[in-house]
């Protein structure tokens, strides 16, 4: 009985968060149909969420591509198909590793930052001050962050894909002496525009989940510094879980839309 209670509490908490995030999504969509915040507020969020995340996303993409190349090379060398390493790296990066790893990195960097900022505003009555000044916190705080995350996560993912593939190519051609011509041909042959589109669509959903979860946790922060810290941690953990679980369902959904996608 005592063992079951924490489980029940955890499920209740997850369901409450899911319901809250969904309600926030509806309110954000409604806010998006009305008057948008000033351009300066939007530009600031695009800068903070997009530009400031570039170094960490590029680093993640580069090293993931290089590691993937080394690991694949070791396996493929045994069956004499090292020229296929480039194809594996590019398809893996574009379909899965690019979107998911970029999403996870943004959940840590951007999600925690959004929750901490909105959470601090909540506990210092700045969110109440916004409402007292007849301004919706959803429109002023949530909408710009969600818009920036939804639009910029695919761009950051594409950048991670490009540097990951470049890193893989550098390792294959520069250090492991794979023939450039075959490496390049196989890469082009296996990588499809559909894959790039699916990667972008998935990363856009991840961006939405990250921003909404972080904003929801920030708006519902418990009072005090400990409350802000707890909310930021919960936002990152919840976002990461949502990214990984939604990735599975999105993959299945896109596979069903184009059955030959899973080769």
């Amino acid at each position: 009985m005592t063992g079951a209670l924490p489980g029940v509490a955890a499920i209740t908490s997850i369901l409450r968060t899911a319901g809250g995030v969904f309600t926030l999504l509806m309110e954000t969509v409604r806010a998006a149909l009305g008057k948008w915040p000033r351009r300066r507020v939007l530009v600031e969020q695009f800068y903070l969420i997009g530009f400031r995340s570039t170094p960490v996303v590029l680093t993640t993409g580069l090293f993931t591509g290089m590691v993937l190349a080394v690991q694949s090379f070791n396996q493929f060398r045994r069956v004499n198909i090292v020229s296929m390493v480039g194809a594996v790296v590019s398809v893996s990066m574009v379909k899965e590793l690019g979107p998911v790893l970029t999403g996870l990195m943004l959940a840590g960097r951007v999600g925690a930052s959004i929750t901490a900022e909105i959470g601090t505003m909540s506990v210092t009555e700045q969110v109440d001050a916004l409402r007292a000044l007849a301004t919706s916190p959803i429109r002023w705080l949530v909408l710009p962050r969600v818009a920036a995350a939804v639009l910029l996560t695919p761009i950051l993912t594409l950048m991670a894909d490009v540097v990951g593939i470049a890193g893989g190519t550098l390792i294959c051609v520069g250090f492991l002496k794979v023939e450039w011509h075959f490496h390049y041909i196989n890469m082009l042959d296996w990588l499809k525009v559909w894959d790039v589109g699916v990667g972008c669509a998935k990363s856009s959903v991840f961006g939405l989940l990250i921003a909404l979860t972080a904003a929801y946790k920030g708006l519902n922060t418990e009072p005090g510094a400990a409350g802000v810290g707890k909310a930021a941690t919960e936002a990152v953990v919840t976002s990461c879980i949502l990214i990984l679980t939604s990735d599975f369902f999105l993959t299945v959904m896109f596979a069903a839309m184009k059955p030959d996608w899973i080769r």
Binding site: T124, E125, A129
Partner: peptide
């Protein structure tokens, strides 16, 4: 409804305990 309250709130000015200025 919250949307209608915005019109009412424009009639108010509030000084919060901690000032609540936007940092």
């Amino acid at each position: 409804h919250e949307r209608d309250l915005f019109g009412i709130r424009q009639r108010f000015g509030m000084l919060f305990q901690g000032a609540a200025l936007f940092d």
